[in-house]
Design a protein around this nucleic acid. Structure first.
Lengths: 327, 327
DNA sequence: GATTGCACTGAAAACGTTTTCACATCGATT
DNA sequence: AATCGATGTGAAAACGTTTTCAGTGCAATC
């Protein structure tokens, strides 16, 4: 038999309004509050969250839209987001887009139908361009990837600086022909590439970049093609953890020693990067911080919808390991 | 201005009932169906899913409760679950318990309040014991970890066989003093341990097991203690990917060569296990299959609540690599 | 002693849908 | 020609809460 607030009210000898107030925070006398608590216990009542959401017009739900939860970067961020959400009594709906703009659009629409409290979103460049066009009816915080300036709050890494830092590090180690392998779908990759190119120019070196879909297999294949040609780099910078993994695989497959034949540096200080031999030099991203800051921005935006757009830029930390040993 | 089904009905010149039917699958003439579609387009109507859920008593939501999404095993499973869910028009709420029975209980209750369609759950042993006590009002499919027999559908690995297989493999390679490092919170670890012990007995060897919290740091520390003592194993079996990683770190820290000083084998064929030198011998779990099978079981249970309890046991696949090279 | 204000309570409306029920309409069957 | 069943439609009820509105009682104030 189904027990609703009605049955609780009857059991406690009060009105449903009083039950609702006793359960939430409403002005109820201590005596009645205790009666209601007892009635809840006796009846085994569980509030129906759909009904609550409908009436109170507060979904208490946030959407988290990322490329692929299996990317450890997003995994870590999502964990932080979920912790923050549940701590505030909110649910999280997780969506994987596989970097597909059509799926991004679909999920953005779905979030509208869910009447979500807000969305945390890592968009592809394609979607980024159209993001400002028609306003969504929920606040959005962009993570990892920047949107058109001034349209949405965002929390991202200082990508240009990080990209430059890797170049500087490699140059200091005596490397000159430094190639770059960057993801083709995110603004993040573009910014890292810009930092790479700026640093290369500053050092009087000619950049050599290739863009790939951000996954290990694509990166590995691209490097194989690259090394089949004449202009082989002596060092390689990978714009994220998946591409970096592809690079390691490619080096193994080609029989290249690291860093002797090819120095390697990249992004994302994933656990395996110091387990391979030699360890990989990476820019570590403050993954948990990105998630919690995104939630903070979201909550503050909700509390104060008209405040100016904010952009939190976090610094990466370079972790220097054997893969970029000075030659 | 807010647009509900009411406004659409007015725009289309029909009743709200007709709009509802035209949007769902109800008997509506083609002419009106087109009128409604046009009105929806014109008004920019988006259905309110909370209202729909409340009225139709179908949450179209499934809960996924795991220890920690950052464990690559759960990451992969969750991705498969989410793909299957969204393909069926369902939402997924992801919950991390950190192996804490209190949080498990909390989330199980929360799922009740969400009136979820069903739950996919990887419980700790502590919760497993009490799972049958009070019936939940949604169907549950257990993954990775078995519950009390006959209480819930489940999809798990053939853990005893997998555990035995690793022992057999090591014994065939000439190893005798084979230690086992097993997680302390899951029935899975227990089953793998049982397989390990059975195989050891069969080979006339004395087992040496230690239980640890299932994370890399704890495993590493335990191995350090182990090797500080007198009875050092010459091979080690780790009951999951995190513990295996801890084992590798410990070996590195202790300056042990693999497999010379210590052979290593474990579970979960994560990408990094063949990037370390030497590659690690592991039992690969069909992670995506586990997720999709779980969803299938869930859907079939919903369609037919009274069918007998089912248990899908999947086989692991041994991937033999350098870490268990014959001595 | 009447009035004000505060703290609490219940009846009923509201949230935005789907579903039930009743009723037309119409072609096919008796 | 009357009846039936199938099909399409609208009015209104229902889903389970929260919130509004209108009190009620009681202590404090004038």
């Amino acid at each position: 038999m189904k027990v609703g607030i009605r049955e609780v009210a009857r059991a406690a000898g009060v009105s449903t309004a009083t039950v609702s107030r006793a359960l939430g925070r409403g002005p109820v006398s201590d005596a009645l509050r205790e009666q209601v608590a007892e009635a809840v216990r006796a009846t085994g009542y569980r509030p129906n969250l759909s009904a609550r959401r409908l009436r109170s017009q507060a979904a208490q739900t946030i959407g988290l839209i990322v490329a692929d939860i299996r990317n450890p970067f997003f995994t870590a961020v999502s964990r932080a987001v979920e912790d923050a959400a549940f701590a505030s009594g909110m649910r999280v709906i997780l969506c994987n887009t596989d970097e597909d703009p059509a799926r991004e659009a679909m999920y953005l629409r779905l979030m509208e139908e869910e009447r979500v409290t807000g969305v945390i979103f890592a968009p592809t460049v394609a979607t980024t361009a159209t993001l400002g066009d028609e306003p969504l009816d929920y606040p959005v915080v962009l993570i990892d990837r920047a949107g058109p300036p001034g349209a949405h709050d965002s929390v991202i890494l200082d990508n240009p600086t990080a990209g430059s830092a890797l170049v500087d590090h490699l140059v200091a180690g005596g490397y000159r022909r430094i190639g770059g392998l960057f993801g083709s779908t995110s603004s993040t990759a573009r910014e890292r590439r810009a930092g790479y190119e700026a640093a290369m120019a500053r050092h009087g070196l000619t950049p050599a970049v290739r863009a790939v879909p951000p996954n290990a297999a694509a990166a590995e294949a691209e490097i194989a093609r690259w090394f089949a040609g004449p202009a082989r780099p002596e060092a390689l910078i990978a714009s994220n953890g998946l591409i970096l993994m592809g690079a390691v695989r490619a080096a193994r497959a080609l029989g290249l020693t690291i860093p002797g034949d090819l120095a390697l540096a990249g992004f994302d200080n994933e656990p395996w990067t110091d387990l391979v031999e030699p360890g990989l030099t990476v820019i570590e991203q403050p993954v948990a911080e990105i998630g919690t800051q995104a939630m903070r921005l979201l909550f503050e935006r909700i509390a104060n919808p008209d405040q100016p757009i904010r952009k939190v830029v976090l610094s990466g930390r370079m972790v220097s390991r054997g893969s970029t040993l000075a030659r």
